[in-house]
């Protein structure tokens, strides 16, 4: 599903963010990505999203070689991925329903299908009664769940979450992680970048550690309670 081979990313200002990353992730896996600030985790996600291009090495996602992906095909490629960020990034002037529906409108989904799918998604994420709330009427955990519903709206194969619980209190964080695991069980490949040690240890999933721009550890189970 996802294959990084000797991936190097040097930013235009000279910062070497990734320095030879090799990583293979299978279809349907759940992977935590951990590492200290500045280690290169977000850069890894940006490369996956094709927001940045690798300086060298190859990245192959679901059969697509990202270095050979032309500009015009990037939108089509991104529809295979759903993204969730630490800061939610919802439209403040749209309701929960509209935020999710917008992601589908943007890719030209017929409105009949949108009307069917959005309520179902909101229910899956336990937001059925919040459909008409605006982001500022929702808690952090609820906003993040709206963002997750939006990420899933176009039925991506891969869900990427970059520190999804960074702005959420610990109790709610558990709920978000539970949902991510549930989404993984529904058949999606899920990548979660996180600093939450307890959660990583609690879930006993595959953990990939990034240090100084490369993979320093890759194992199943807890990372911090050696």
């Amino acid at each position: 599903m996802i294959d990084f081979t000797n991936v190097v990313k040097t930013y235009p200002n000279g910062t070497v963010a990734l320095n030879g990353v090799n990583l293979h992730i299978d279809d349907g896996e759940f992977v935590f990505v951990v590492g200290s600030t500045g280690a290169g985790k977000s850069t890894l996600m940006k490369l996956l999203l094709r927001e940045e291009k690798a300086t060298s090495g190859t990245i192959i996602v679901d059969g697509t070689d990202l270095s050979k992906l032309s500009y015009f095909k990037v939108p089509q490629y991104r529809r295979k991925l759903g993204v969730v960020f630490q800061d939610f990034r919802l439209f403040p002037k749209k309701t929960a329903y509209e935020n999710v529906a917008f992601a589908m409108q943007v890719v030209g989904t017929p409105s009949k299908k949108i009307r069917r799918r959005v309520p179902a998604l909101l229910n899956t994420l336990s937001l059925g009664d919040k459909a008409n709330c605006f982001p500022n009427e929702l808690s952090g955990g609820e906003q993040q769940r709206v963002a997750m519903a939006r990420a899933l709206a176009n039925n991506p194969k891969i869900l990427i979450a970059d520190e999804p619980t960074g702005n959420i209190d610990p109790k709610m964080s558990l709920e978000i992680m539970n949902l991510l695991v549930k989404i993984n069980k529904l058949g999606k490949t899920v990548l979660v970048v996180t600093h939450a040690k307890e959660l990583v240890d609690y879930y006993q999933q595959r953990v990939v550690m990034i240090e100084n721009g490369h993979v320093s550890d890759d194992r199943v189970g807890g990372m911090y309670n050696k």
Partner: peptide, 16 residues
Amino acid sequence: KNEIEIMRYVGATGTF
């Protein structure tokens, strides 16, 4: 700017 960023992430085309 923020709207555009989100649109790009969900796969909106340049034309859109």
